[in-house]
Amino acid sequence: MDAADNQTTRLTDAQRLDWLRLIRSDNVGPRTFRSLINHFGSARAALERLPDLARRGGAARPGRIVSEHEAHLELTASKRLGVSLVAPGEIGYPPRLALIDDAPPLLGIRGAADALMRPMIAIVGSRNASGAGLKFAGQLARELGNAGFVIASGLARGIDQAAHRASLGSGTLAALAGGHDKVYPPEHDELLAAILDQGGAAISEMPLGHVPRARDFPRRNRLISGVALGVAVIEAAYRSGSLITARIAAEQGREVFAVPGSPLDPRAAGTNDLIKQGAQLITEAADIVNAVAPIQERPIELPSREPDEPAAIDEPGWDDRARVTALLGPSQIGLDDLVRLANVSPAVARTVLLELELAGRLERHGGGLVSLI
């Protein structure tokens, strides 16, 4: 049982507006959003502190903060298109996605919300897939759908679209790299319409009008793996984006499955290598069903949205700020190491990192690592 029965929490209208303003403001990503909420107790309090934090981080001028009017316009336009902006814990927000470190604070969902609450398996693979690969993707998606799983994928050409089409009747989820009104590739408009018409859903963390860029696809890939119990990779070359999804899935603690292929086919080089690295070799849907059965029984406990009380804020002094900043560079480093080497409290280190990020000087990576831009 993949329970999300207790997920009935809901943001107030005022909170939703503040959350949207905060996540759409300059230099605020999902991890920074969470840090700001934990520091200041609410999005509204964080919005008030953004200019001061950015100034302390070395910004020449404050980053752009989205106004209430702009946020109202986005909410209105989203409703017009049938897109709901939901927070972790609300109906429609995939419960497993809410558990990842960089879960979107607000997720734009369109279609059947109940499909998003069911257990999912992601299927990804080559855009330039072979006939055999396309056939197997369809077969795997149909069999997993018959076993009760929603199929998640990225609406791309090749394996993705084959998996979506084969699971239209049982439920499929499309994770988009752009806004809901900027489907990529454009020729899959009709496929997305079919998904929505037949009880499936689409998700995106991007605002309406956002045209996907190259760097948006890895961000999208973390959503594909994040919603799922596991990710099945069918045909992936050595430099395939599907391998990025597999890596992210492993970092998120998801099961990674790979379909073996001929060593003579470069489209199978990546999947064969995944198997060498420890991915589970699969040849049928039963392999996946058996592997994820124990995981489905574990209850899902979501983190709270806005804390009742803000975390204690330990304002860094000039010396503390200088010591933490001096330890940062282009190489990635973790918070524990910064605390130890700079001889400061975790609260001080986190505050300095927030200041630098809001000044556009810091980049966050998986596993809690950071580096200077």
Rank of each mutant, 00 (worst) to 15 (best):
T9C: 15
R16Y: 07
L17D: 06
R24K: 13
F33V: 04
F33S: 05
F33W: 09
L36M: 06
F40M: 10
R44L: 13
D52Q: 14
G57C: 11
G58A: 14
A59M: 07
A60L: 14
R61A: 15
P62S: 11
A77L: 13
S78V: 07
V86E: 01
G92L: 05
Y93P: 04
R96W: 10
D101R: 12
D101F: 12
R110T: 08
A112G: 01
P119C: 10
S126T: 11
A132K: 08
F136N: 01
G138I: 10
G138Y: 06
G145E: 09
I151P: 03
A152M: 03
I159H: 00
A163G: 00
H164A: 09
H164Y: 04
R165M: 13
A166D: 03
A166E: 06
V183D: 07
P186Q: 09
D197Y: 07
G200C: 06
V211D: 13
R220L: 07
R220K: 08
L223A: 09
L229T: 02
V233I: 14
E235A: 12
S242N: 08
G261W: 01
L264T: 13
L264F: 12
G270L: 02
D273H: 14
A291N: 07
L302C: 10
P303W: 05
E309G: 02
A312E: 14
G329D: 11
P330S: 15
D337T: 15
V339E: 10
A347C: 09
L354H: 02
E355V: 06
L358S: 05
L358E: 00
